[in-house]
């Protein structure tokens, strides 16, 4: 068991690095890749990377969740008229905030969108094309990667539910036998 984990570790690390493609759901069991000092490192560089979890125009304050799994922390950052890219601070979206300290307060200087990176050899599909495939009953395997409860509430026609942790555990056993079949994965964002 322990050996198996060691063998999986490099893969898990890569997955950890890639897994910011979607708005995060609070009930996802996050990967426990050791990243103890990530939050600290980010703070030292005066950069927060993560998901926006709140924004108040009245208090001119943004909350951003940085780090993964048990290391995840929510950071509060203020913004003002000097802050660039406030429009990228949207709840549920991934963002990169460069900040500076002024007295006891932390102010955002620049807010940028954090774009999802596709794994090598994987292409994006847009709504129109996917909708045509669904309408024409094109042979494909459509996978909902969100937690099962989200799938239960609302999923695309013909989609099967394979949450990320389940795919990691069961691996290809849940996927088609034919390795050439079209696989399409989706989740809940970036919204």
């Amino acid at each position: 068991m322990y050996k198996k984990f060691i063998k999986l570790l490099p893969g898990l690390l890569i997955i950890g690095l890639l897994s910011f493609g979607c708005a995060q759901s609070p009930d996802v069991k996050q990967e426990m890749t050791p990243k103890a000092s990530q939050t600290q490192q980010q703070a030292e560089k005066n950069v927060y990377k993560g998901t926006i979890v709140g924004k108040s125009n009245k208090a001119k304050t943004i909350s951003i969740e940085v780090g993964k799994g048990k290391q995840a922390q929510t950071m509060m950052v203020k913004f003002d008229d000097q802050t660039k890219g406030v429009e990228h601070a949207v709840k549920g979206h991934a963002a990169i905030i460069t900040f500076e300290k002024r007295g006891n307060d932390v102010y955002a200087k620049v807010i940028k969108q954090k774009l999802a990176k596709l794994p090598q050899g994987v292409t994006e599909i847009k709504t129109e094309e996917l909708s045509a495939l669904v309408t024409n009953a094109h042979k494909m395997y459509l996978v909902d990667s969100r937690p099962a409860s989200r799938y239960g509430q609302s999923h695309l026609p013909g989609a099967v539910s394979i949450p990320v942790p389940i795919l990691k555990e069961k691996q290809a056993a849940l996927l088609p036998v034919d390795k050439n079949e079209l696989l399409i994965f989706y989740c809940g964002g970036p919204t």
Partner: peptide
Amino acid sequence: YKNVRVYLDGE
């Protein structure tokens, strides 16, 4: 798998 795509915009 050789033919993998992602519907980033999602549900």
